[in-house]
Simulated scan of single mutants.
Amino acid sequence: MTEMAREAATGLDTDSGSGGQPVLDRLIALLDLEKIEENIFRGVSPAHSPVRVFGGQVAGQALVAAGRTVPEERTVHSLHAYFIRGGDPSVPIIYEVDRTRDGRSFTTRRVLAIQHGKAIFSLSASFQKHEPGIEHSEDMPDVPGPESLPTLTERAEGFDIGLRERPRPIDLRYVNDPPWVTRQTGAHPARNQVWMRADGKLGDEQLLHVCVLTYASDMTLLDSVLARHGVYWDLDGVVGASLDHALWFHRPFRADEWFLYDSASPSASGARGLAQGRFFAAVGTLIATVVQEGLLRVP
């Protein structure tokens, strides 16, 4: 996530502080789209946003739009999205849902996000009714627990990176040194590991938890690309943007309980970087997998 995107993600209000239930409630409200016609929904951005809409916001809202047209007993198991244009936070976003298919086990939806008469984002999502089957999961990395780690505000102490004293709906705790530290130490870590959770309580609707994780999945992921080269966003004049995003949801989870975001970058070339991430519940089960390619222009 670029520094600009991080501002959008954290700029849900102008109050100071690390977040908490009031800020999380504003994120929940942001994800609660207005239905303006059958298969057509309207979403807004935070009142205090920079020049582009945060990618995790539009992905989360598009998934809400898709989910509102699907029976509750069918849960999303995958989404694939493209970021087409930078979103304008000063005007609403219209989400048009195409009910592609309603099968016996699977439901497929396509969503187009539109501003100023042009597409800014597209998403395809697949939903499935619960079915029993074979089970296995990769093991979670051996890392310290989140409660023993510094908060994001504490990690940002002494660094001019715009992360301190901003309200955040997501509580982040870096396991290893964050990239703005490793760029100074000369370390080039192969993995970026962050504990996350919604900073407050969510309801029991599973779609909301999935959409909050989708929102959070655009945070810190591209950092794993830059960390390999010892550079960090505005500190080094990096110009970046999410290009595409894919998520697979493996098991039910709660986004207001701690989950580990373990990410790495297998490749960077042609001013693009690829990042892969895995989400683990605190009990050790793999709950989701993400892949994203981003535009990264490094001076």
Rank of each mutant, 00 (worst) to 15 (best):
E138H: 09
F249E: 08
F106H: 03
G203K: 00
A190T: 15
R197E: 03
E96N: 07
I287E: 12
A113E: 12
E165M: 06
I94Y: 06
V76E: 00
I40G: 03
V212C: 06
G270Y: 05
V143I: 13
V44P: 00
A275C: 05
T185W: 10
E37C: 00
W180V: 01
V290G: 09
I114Y: 10
I114N: 07
D15H: 07
V51G: 14
L235V: 07
L208I: 11
T285F: 04
E157P: 03
L30F: 07
G19R: 01
S242M: 11
E7P: 00
V238L: 08
K118Q: 13
T220L: 07
L163R: 02
A187V: 09
L208M: 12
E37T: 03
D88C: 05
A119K: 09
I287H: 10
R168H: 08
A9Y: 11
V210D: 09
S124M: 15
R99G: 01
L274N: 04
L24Y: 07
T75K: 12
D139C: 03
L243N: 07
Q128F: 10
A190R: 14
G277L: 04
D142R: 02
P132R: 02
T182Q: 01
D142E: 14
E135H: 08
L221A: 10
G43K: 06
Y215F: 15
P252G: 11
A119E: 15
V76G: 02
S78N: 15
K129Q: 15
A275Y: 00
D15K: 05
L79D: 08
S126E: 10
N192L: 14
A62E: 04
P189S: 04
G284S: 01
W248D: 11
Q184A: 06
Q115G: 10
A156K: 08
G60K: 06
I94R: 07
V194W: 01
L31S: 06
P299E: 12
S126W: 06
V23R: 03
R197C: 06
R74G: 09
F279L: 04
L79E: 03
Y232Q: 02
T153K: 07
I134L: 13
G133E: 12
H77Q: 14
A125S: 15
T214K: 04
L33D: 01
R173Q: 10
F106P: 01
L149E: 05
R164C: 12
P178G: 06
R101M: 10
T214V: 11
L226H: 09
E37D: 15
D102M: 00
